[in-house]
Design a protein around this nucleic acid. Sequence first.
RNA 1: GCAGGGGUGGCAGAGCCUGGCCAAAUGCGACGGGCUUAGGACCCGUUUCCAUAGUGGAUGCGAGAGUUCAAAUCUCUCCCCCUGCACCA
Length: 933
Amino acid sequence: MIDYKAIESKWQKAWADAKIFEGEISNKKQYMVTAAFPYVNGPQHIGHLRTYGTADVLARYKRMHGLNVLYPMAFHATGTPVLAFAKRIRNGDEELKKELRMFHIPDEEIAKMTDPLYIANYFVGEIEKGMHLAGYSIDWRRKFVSIDANFSKLIEWQFDILNKKGYLIKGKHAVGWCPNENNAVGMHDTKHDVEPEIETETAVKFKVDGEDAYLICATYRPETISGVTNLFVNQDSRYALCRIAGQEGKYYVSKGSIQTLLFQMQIDEEREVHGNDLLAKKCINPVTKAVIPVLPGFSVKDDVGTGLVMSVPAHAPFDYAAIEKLEMEGYDTSSIVPIKVLSMPPGKIGGDIPALEYIKMAGALSYDENALEEATKLEYKDEFHFGIMDVEGFRGMKVADAKEKIKGDLIKSGDAIEIYELANESQVYCRCGSKVVVKMVDGQWFINYGDAGWKKLAKEVLSGANVLPEKSRSAFLSALDWINLRAAERAQGLGTRFPYEKSHIIESLSDSTIYMSFYTISNLIRDVDPEKLTGEFFDYVMLGRGDAESVSKSTGVDFGVVRKCRDSFSYWYTNTSRHSAPELIFNHLTMYMFNHAAIFSKDSWPKQIVVNGTVLSEGEKMSKSLGNIVPLTDGLEKYGVDPLRFTVVAGADLFSDSEFSDKAVNGVKERFEYLFEVTGKLEKLEAKELTHMDYWLYSKLNRKIRDVTGAMEKLELRNASTNLLYSTVIELKRYFARGGSNAITVRDYLSGITLMMQPIAPHISEELWHRLGNDTFSSTEKWPSADISMISEKAEEGEEILDSVIADAKQIIGLMEKKGEKKARSIRIIVAEDWKRDLQGAMAREKDMKKAIESLPDNLKEKGAKYAALLSKHMNELKEVPMVQEEEFLLLSESTVFLEENIGAKVEVEKEGESKSQRAGRAMPLKPSMDVS
RNA sequence: GCAGGGGUGGCAGAGCCUGGCCAAAUGCGACGGGCUUAGGACCCGUUUCCAUAGUGGAUGCGAGAGUUCAAAUCUCUCCCCCUGCACCA
């Protein structure tokens, strides 16, 4: 049994002592690998191995190619999660405590986690510990946290540049808002972690006939405005006549809705009105100018929208049904005639009153709200997709387009305003318990990723970078196009103060777009007073502006430090690979490219971006709520580091999820054991002359080196790992089973495998390397290179022929035994004549049976014609035969022992021409005939 | 809805770009056999159907259509699944 613990600590200590992972400037070519820095609101689970492990594999792989590799690590603590965390602990949140206990965090530690900084520090320690255990080749001297004071100076410098370039703008923005806490709420501020979904609605103004006031109705379907036949009001609710800032005239709005609308606009109530009082009024449709009545509605909620609803009976099942119901209750609805505003293509639901058709379909004949809801959804969806406008001015236009156009027109003419509403199915609550509303934030700073010139630059960054896997490039392209305004600051959270609104904090994804550059200097300025790290300092270090001497003088930073920082930055930040998760393509990674485009010169732009998938546990997503999370340290302890790395990091290709299970890890472990076993057996073997099997094993080795190298270049780790581990074991077993026993061959083979395993399974690799008699680190050895001349198709094909001969023989014997015949004693294997090989070759070349037969000597033409007819069935698939009869004969006769062992009968090998067997004629090249007796 | 990625054998998962050597790698599972006191491990075989002293045939890679001598692979249409959609890391 392999003692993983012993091996891990032995080599981790040896690496640390030898400082082989500390990146120092040298004359070697440099390479820098950075992975998204971990957020410090919890320890890591084995899923995190995916990103950091993959980055480590790349770092180690590149190191073995003679590059001077730097793999640094830092921690992310910016933003609100840590604050929210502390608050939840203060409030005694049991759910969170339960999660923490899953990670074996002692209760006395949890009790201390009421202080955000304590939390951050605690998890920085925990995560770092796990990363050490995982054997990452990280240069820990460069570690920092995103709330460190000197890091903030870099971010201030960054925002200064963005501002100078005009990429920062100020504007309005709708956000989910907690009126109680007076703060924006995102997903993790809400109960049950729901994302507040904000949708825009059009609030259309209907002038009251003969009064200087409007009824204002919110709608998702402004395109149906010409079909409005009346308005609905909740006759039991209270309304108010009010003024809306920036809008002319007075408006009737329900009291309930005012409370939420207040967060979006300034509303001043003048007097209260009862819903009943509105029924007497008549209104004017702003588009058709028709005078329409106000009727009592049955489903009008006074806290949704404006508490007033416009009625489009032709296209809204609710409205149609309400009018029918009114009629039944004795109202005079004779003046209300549904007006159709759009038509549907043939084959879709249509008719003169489409809403009625949908009502019938949904079975909503009585006023059944659920069924009407269903009908509404269906009709809305169908008409949005397939509907064609049928009203003056928009005739022929698609509904989807007309909606935007009409809405725009109405707003422009002052007949409508835009309001916002939460679109979630059920009410969203803040963790504090109050209802979440939509608030218009005025004076919000944005980063304008919509800037055309900037977008163009960012695209240049992308096209200059290698993307792995390459197929995710299309996602990046659309992300670059799509990204537009992004909030740059918020009121709460840890982090760097926003320079133009000092009470605010820079938004936490925006402060982590260029932090990788900080690694190049973080260890050099650890003791420098942050106040000295001015814009001038960074201008010089990162952009090369000015000179060290004057920068040193004016900033007060030591001249040597300034110089070193500049040297370090310009050395390291030129050849970088960035690792992250796919869900970050549409934010972090895209912003990363934009910010590099804005700030750095082309030399410092990203050279490679790697995106990798997540890890599934027994087929399920790992999540704290499912309780199926395996804490990283637990996993490393339980399975051993390298088995876990092999399974999780190399268990799937980039981008797809890797499957984690006990079985998978055990499979890896068994094969590691086998490699150790063979290594131990090595000393019993002797060096001797090379045989067919040695050539075969060398062929396999070199093919493997070639294939694994190709796979590693594209970080196709699954491909590399199966090739390295699974097929290796199969090959070694075959080598020994076929009598291979050459110490030199086996040592060469194992050495190659051991070195190639180094990036994925570094501890195992070091140990094997050591046991193979080396006293260097495999970590710093050269990656093996394939000797293509050693790849022998013939040697490999030979083994395949043997396998197929064995399989055929066994099949024949099996069939015979099934028929009740006696057990086979001996078997004659008859090798096809050369003319068959020639004929097949000729047919493969000529693709013409006649010509091929012509090429045979006369005495063989008759036999040849029959054989050719057989071959001609697969004319297009024929290939030349790589072996002549003599070679095939030798191969088989030299392998009779192996054949006999596997077939379980005595074996004789004959040539077709010399065989007396009746079955001799059936021999085909590489598919010998057999005669069993 | 928009954007991106997918749908392959009992399962997981390659192959698809660059069509033929693909009834489809590899791993797991299941079944039969060997080994063993027994289990585990290990080894051998089977695992779409039919045929069979073997090398064959049929069906087949979400559904349908097409291109081609030839399609899991290329084209089109449709269906389904996953992920992201913003101020949140």
